[in-house]
Design a binder for these strands. Structure first.
Lengths: 220, 220, 220, 220
DNA sequence: TATGAATGAGCGTTCATTCAT
DNA sequence: CATGAATGAACGCTCATTCAT
């Protein structure tokens, strides 16, 4: 009953019917990404999604089994797009300082321009990661980013620019923390600090500070 | 319109009935904090809360007006407790390095030991801070923490230990980001990295790294 | 349990406590008249009434036993006021034509200026008169109006102006029908006819038509 | 927003499922007419209706959007049936006196035999006609009755039987008032007058009086 | 006499999901 | 493949009413 039509279609040809189906499926997935990001898992109703996708509730069950299956598919989608974006962007490893700056900017930019990604991850953490643990593809997206940091750090260390006692994982987490938090908590933090965090000036200022700070941390 | 019984009782005597009422109200508030933290705003149903509080749905509306009013009261409660905890803890300002270390440890500890706080803030950010903006008491809790950092940094700068070109706000955000993220995203990050973030070892290791990093950032 | 404090107070003196109580009771009654007239019996909640009266739900039960008792008291009140208004107005019986005109005008005016009366009667008819049948005072208010018509008709007949084969009851009902309906159904009829019924012009025009028509009916 | 399934189905074929659906919808509409007529709008709960229709609450929202939409559909239904009944009945215009008698009898009979119609109209007037104003079909039902009266009066005037200075609208309202009131207020009026209004004798007597009176009013 | 607190049933409405073509 | 119809539980909230001072 939880078997969906996703797998079987993959091995068949891509006739006109399959294309139409693919577009229906994609439309639902796109709508679900928006709705779940905006309303959370519980707040995002099946009907909201199907209506936004201009489809029918029934189709969600046809393609994704149930609401949870749809949410997992959404998570996989945003992970994959994040991974693809990271794969495309390849900083020059020969200039470790510039490469690190670029990597930091990429993170800050990506979260800021994809608040849905952030919201969906928060939602998933609210559910203690129960959905992501059901997706076998999740870990495969993860190592690329850490590996990139590792290469940059190694290069910097070999050039005598960076410390050699650093764990790439820590630097990765440091960057991600500062980038993620700035988008994730922009509403409560703005209220807290009494100043907005999402103006271009505030964003640029934070970016400069983070880059400078990380460089101080890694400096040999 | 949604006038509640909260204010009027405070100025009156504390008879046996008032005490019982207070306990009913507090029980609901405590239950709501747990339920909202666990299930989010939409997932946290009024019935779940009243059942956990061993009370009745109706009493939630009696004391808090509606579900949103209850959620706002929950937010105010966790902010206030956080603020009180921060007020109690007063690091020795004469030793800026140690004071900064203590401040960082406090943050890391507080979030780690109060995951509800983190979850509720994420929920509130999911709703774009709409509830916190309705609470006039929210901003009053905010400045203490930044002021503390400011004093420490000023002290460190005057002793020639720290840089003098730092904005306290930035250091505050740096600490908070690293502390918050480690708790907030522990589930997805654990899955991502393939290793748990919430073991005592991982926590201790992250604490050491953050303290070391912040000190490198502020060092003159 | 359904015993109220209404009767017992009547025989006691009218001290300051009783006066305060009377004003509480009257305030509730006045508020209930408005609320029931506006929202009907089911739509008029106890809380709406007590809030409008700036009193407490509990007082309604104290003074009127329950919601139904309050509604009966409201009905008795509007009947009594109607009866008193009719008693005050005493047309000159020696001029039957003018007296009849005056009686008609009184009815038209009273309903138009007391739409609450009309609405409450409709509400009571919706409930098949179950409340009014519980009030022993209702019939005592009724005969005055018919008796007045009877006197006018008798006088007119004895002067050779009016028919002598008329039943006062029928003329009374004819007048009441045309007066009541014009107020009672003003909303649906306005929509139906595509023109408002409650403008001064429409009211005056209808009054003239009704007076002229009734006179044609009774004319010898 | 509250889009229902009503329109789209009308243009499609009438398969067995469509028929079943139609019967579900009609059953709800029939049940709602009874329940609203008996308990009013507020007193007529969604559950009462769905239970009487042997359906489910959910289907009311499926077919009618919400309770208000259902009530509007009920109003449209009774208007339409009234209109159809009036269209079927076509008195001989060549005999204006007899035609007028027939028209009066029709009105008196229709209200007496359809007390639901009367009750629903009163309910709608309680709500100040807010539902009927949302129905674009309401006015289309209205003019037929007035037009009929107009034709009869014109015919009578041209034959020298009726006055020529009459406004059809007034005669229409006169007839409707006397007919409507006798059904609408039968409960309170019976209690008032101390005699029942809905016995066959009382009905016949009132019919005779109204017919005689209207003829006296229109007589040349 | 007045008032705050409590109670359980019921309200209109939406939920995720399945059935039947 | 797509769609309309059906289903029962749960939702946030209000109801009339009673208890306890």
């Amino acid at each position: 009953m939880t078997q969906t039509k996703q797998q079987s279609r993959a091995v068949r040809g891509t006739g006109v019917r399959e294309a139409a189906a693919q577009s229906t499926r994609d439309g639902i997935l796109r709508a679900a990404t928006k709705v779940f990001a905006r309303y959370g898992y519980d707040g995002g109703s099946v009907e909201k999604i199907s209506r936004l996708a201009k489809s029918y509730d029934r189709m969600i069950y046809y393609y994704f089994g149930n609401k949870e299956g749809l949410f997992i598919a959404v998570l996989e989608g945003i992970y994959q797009r994040m991974d693809e974006a990271e794969a495309k962007f390849a900083p020059d490893a020969n200039d470790p300082v510039e490469a690190l700056k670029t990597a930091i900017r990429f993170r800050l930019d990506y979260y800021r321009r994809h608040p849905d990604f952030v919201t969906l991850l928060n939602t998933e953490n609210l559910h203690k990661g129960k959905h992501v643990s059901k997706s076998p593809r999740a870990p495969e997206f993860s190592s690329h980013a850490v590996n990139l940091i590792a290469r940059i750090l190694a290069n910097g260390a070999s050039q005598g620019l960076f410390r050699s006692d650093l764990r790439p994982r820590d630097i990765y987490l440091l960057i991600v923390s500062t980038a993620y938090f700035h988008t994730s908590n922009r509403y409560t933090m703005s209220a807290f600090l009494g100043e907005p965090l999402d103006t271009p000036e505030a964003v640029a200022q934070w970016e400069a500070f983070v880059i400078d700070s990380v460089l101080r941390v890694v400096k040999a």
